[in-house]
Nucleic acid binder design. Sequence first.
DNA 1: CGCCCTTTGTTCTTAATTTCACAAGCCGCT
DNA 2: AGCGGCTTGTGAAATTAAGAACAAAGGGCG
Lengths: 256, 256
Amino acid sequence: MTAISNGKVPVPTLERLATYLRFLIDLDQSDIETISSAEVERQTGINAAQFRKDLSYFGEFGKPGVGYNVKDLQSRIARILKIDREQRVILVGAGNLGSALVGYPGLKEHRFNLVAVFDNNYGKIGRPLWELEILDIVRLKEVNAKLRARIAILAVPASAAQGVADMLVDAGIHAILNFAPVILRVPEYVVVRNVSFLQELAVLSYHLSAEQSEDGHELGSQNGASESSNGNSAFHPLSEATPETAESRAQAHDAV
Amino acid sequence: MTAISNGKVPVPTLERLATYLRFLIDLDQSDIETISSAEVERQTGINAAQFRKDLSYFGEFGKPGVGYNVKDLQSRIARILKIDREQRVILVGAGNLGSALVGYPGLKEHRFNLVAVFDNNYGKIGRPLWELEILDIVRLKEVNAKLRARIAILAVPASAAQGVADMLVDAGIHAILNFAPVILRVPEYVVVRNVSFLQELAVLSYHLSAEQSEDGHELGSQNGASESSNGNSAFHPLSEATPETAESRAQAHDAV
DNA sequence: CGCCCTTTGTTCTTAATTTCACAAGCCGCT
DNA sequence: AGCGGCTTGTGAAATTAAGAACAAAGGGCG
């Protein structure tokens, strides 16, 4: 009774896989060794059958009557997503967002190794950004011929996005994480994932409107509030103290 | 022959609505006054029928035989998403990412007004971040009682996310844009949208693996590359020059 | 002023995703 | 060693989204 990733895997499944991995890492750190799909549902809200089916695309991972071994499942999902090995990543655009990403420890923790940063602003080229030096965008192809990164993060203004995307493709990039609010045109063998804050905010704004009939209504901040862990006990530090400092410990923080 | 947003609108439709808006703004800036769904498909890759159907959830926007008036459609979509009016937003977490967001001009351009920033790090509290002063997280409820923001951006480490989310709910927030890789538990009347870079990268990584059989393979950087606008003519500036400088002009840049 | 060409709004089909439901498998206890 | 309680993996049903297809409507031109 098996199948193991025969045909194609639904994209939503892949997206959840990353979530599961995240969750499993947390469980592992809490020294939990086994978990059932029912418990996953209880803690994440993701339907238990969904969880099992998602995994079933890749084989059998659990033991009937017992559940899943946290450590084992964790490493197997990591292998599926190919983040059990180092993945070299390059970044284009050393602006606010780009800089924030370079300093984000979560990348290294997940084996995404940022190996180069490019920009076209002469005021920035040559300057250091964390541990890297900002390189001239014109050297993109040349530099990546050696680095051989396949993943690129595109954090440039919308107006420049398509042009840079073309350069990335030409430089051998096969996957682009695009932060510019533009639909990129690339060859079919290149995968693109878009991240748009504005789009997300717009969706939130829409939902808000439904209840906020026309504003000016007193909602009183003491509504039924609570629900989950309201008595937020232990208080953890927000924002990684000072970026540099926060490096060391894996899994310590992840916001970004 | 109309309907106008009777029941519920599919979330994917809402997401695309924001994309359409973006696209329309670009068209408008190119002084294009009218556009047909067929042309939208040609330029964005989004199916024409899809475009028409998405709009049909909210009424009639075009003229048969003619198409859609760019300016009109633009403002009507903005109204639907409720971003035709100012939306106050608060940010929690003045780390790398949070700081980058505060400086992002796209927010203002879309009427999202960042009215306060909070953190719990005493080294940061009281310090200025762009035009705002970083406030102590303990003042969240008190401050928002006056500001009455309904949308919050959560850019704190995973370990602190749930605790802060509880505080946000208690402070009257109804929509949360969550950057922490954690599934938040909130009352059903609160809407949450998650943004996870790592998840996106993981999906990209997975797709990569399919072709990159086992690495070590010479792919030659001069593969069939091209496709779309390869001769990237005019070259625009990457990363908003220097943050402060880039403020002024609306629509000028949008990466983030 | 009526014909023809174009493009919308919408219904009907097809495809994708989620959820249900249950046989089969594993564990522990007697 | 076998019974009972749980939990998995998965085929089949239900739900949801995407895409085609077409009747109705607008505009321009002869």
